[in-house]
Amino acid sequence: MDKSALSLKVDSQKFLHRNEFVGHVFAAPFVFGFICFSLIPILTSLYYSLTNYSMMTKGQPDFIGIKNYLNLFQDEIFVKSIGVTLKYVFISVPLKLAFALFVAYLLTRKSRLVTLYRSLYYIPSLVGGSVAVTLVWKQLFARKGLFNALMVNLGLDAINWFGDKNLALYPLVLMSVWQFGSSMIIFAAGLKEIPESYYEAARIDGGNGLQIFLRITLPCLSPIILYNLIMQTISAFMAFTQAYIITGGGPDNGTMMYALYVYLHAIKYGNMGYACAMSWFMLVIMSIITLIIFKTSKAWVFTEAD
């Protein structure tokens, strides 16, 4: 017993030793990338956020403590940008997920055409992030754009979408919701994995369509809803291109997304220290929101063990 255990130990030691090496060889690109492109930038930005580093003035940046962070809350545009970003996230993400789930549900039929339909519905996601389509979107909601033409045809008044600070965000929200494709495909995959027997049992018990959806489909999908919710929330917080190209943050900062404001301070005004403080503040907010989602998910996500 002792002997075999010992030889096993020696063998496994050797084995582990080899695995250690192989593992690091394969993981090397990530280890390098993580240190150089995530860890070091994040740590330097923490340091710079405590300085008055500016690209405009030469010389060493001065250490100014938490002054940048205090200034953030004096900065009206900054406070506004948080409001705008939160509004954008809280409207666009739930709408997008609901829409993606709706379309995925619609396309669960057993038909050969369904794959074709899914491809069709994926097109907005495929092209929606491009500058090309963003410029089209700008044109669609222009004063004499397509959307207003449609409204006039329906007997409504044309709306000056990008001229009104309270309305300008909605075309951007709509554009984000429109790109529901990748969430849809992930939902569709999840729907496919729900066993048919669950539905049959529910039908025998006399459940109607809505009940079945609420009691079976949604709980079975909940891990996937969680995944989509987190990924979409993070990407919504990063929204930049749309705001930069369509509105430039205006009118009256009504579409001043967080990422856009960071960009303006860093690249346009050269206030690197201040921009770093903004990034760190954002990191904290994002972490809190992700944490809240994870914590609450215990209450609504069902795993197979339940």
Binding site: S45, F237, V262, Y263, C276, S279
Partner: peptide, 13 residues
């Protein structure tokens, strides 16, 4: 889970 825009400024630097 880390939004890329957080790294935008420090990476640029």
């Amino acid at each position: 889970l880390l939004p890329g825009q957080i790294l935008m400024v420090p990476s640029f630097l």
